[in-house]
Structures are given as structure tokens and as C-alpha cells.
């Protein structure tokens, strides 16, 4: 059923900007249009572009936001999320924990 929903109306996660829009909905309680405007502005694209794989395949790699295919030497996991924090101006809990664990003891 996940596939059916994605095909009908889904943004596409890290194929495009779905995870970024989701972060703004959850972190700042933004409704979808507002969340899209916010993310689009931060990336310098239009809201229409946010679910365009053609735009985002390269954009995500250039900005280190994590890419959908297995590309060596690109940020993944915490590293990609730290770049997402910087882009969106938010704090991500797993990144905070990482920083705490990295702190000098």
C-alpha cells in the first residue's frame, strides 16, 4: 500500500524533498503548503520543484543532504542530518546526541 500512496500523492522521501518538508511539519507544526514554501526558500527552488527527482538527485548530492542511491563518499546518516540541520535551521535529536557523545570527557 505504501507504493500505491506514493504513486498517487507522495513526495518521495529522499528521492526528492519529502523528508525535509516532513521535518518542518513535525518540528514547527507547519501545514504542508507553508512547510513546502519554507523548504523551497531555503533551497532556492520553487515549491513545484520539491517533488521533482530531476531537480533533487543532483541538488541533494551537492548540498550533502543524503541521496537515494548508494554513492560512496557522500554524507549518510548523522552527517547528512547535520547538513539538513544547517539548511533548515532546526535541531535534530540524533545529531544532538551525537554531539553530546563527541564532547570531550
Amino acid at each position: 500500500m505504501a507504493i500505491a500512496h506514493f504513486v498517487a500523492s507522495g513526495m518521495g522521501g529522499i528521492r526528492t524533498a519529502g523528508d525535509l518538508v516532513a521535518r518542518m511539519e513535525f518540528t514547527k507544526r507547519m501545514k504542508v503548503d507553508k512547510a513546502k514554501e519554507y523548504v523551497a526558500k531555503k533551497l532556492g527552488v520553487t515549491s513545484f520543484d520539491l517533488s521533482d527527482e530531476y531537480v533533487f538527485r543532483d541538488l541533494r548530492e551537492e548540498r550533502g543532504l543524503g541521496v537515494i542511491t548508494g554513492v560512496p563518499k557522500t554524507p549518510k546518516g548523522i552527517a547528512a542530518k547535520m547538513n539538513i540541520e544547517d539548511l533548515l535551521g532546526i535541531k535534530i535529536n540524533s545529531c544532538e546526541r551525537f554531539r553530546q557523545y563527541r564532547a570531550k570527557r
Binding site: 500500500m1 498517487a8 500523492s9 513526495m11 522521501g13 519529502g18 504542508v32 517533488s51
Partner: peptide
């Protein structure tokens, strides 16, 4: 068989049940 929203009108897909699906 399959219909969909217009391009640019997509929404966020969140999940329940996690990996159990």
C-alpha cells in the same frame, strides 16, 4: 487503474507499524 494528484501537489507520507509491514 491508477490516479494521482497533479505535480506539485504531493503531500508527506508518514508511517505506522514501522518495519512490521
Amino acid at each position: 487503474r491508477v490516479v494521482g494528484v497533479q505535480r506539485g501537489k504531493e503531500v508527506v507520507l508518514s508511517y505506522d507499524i514501522g518495519q512490521l509491514d
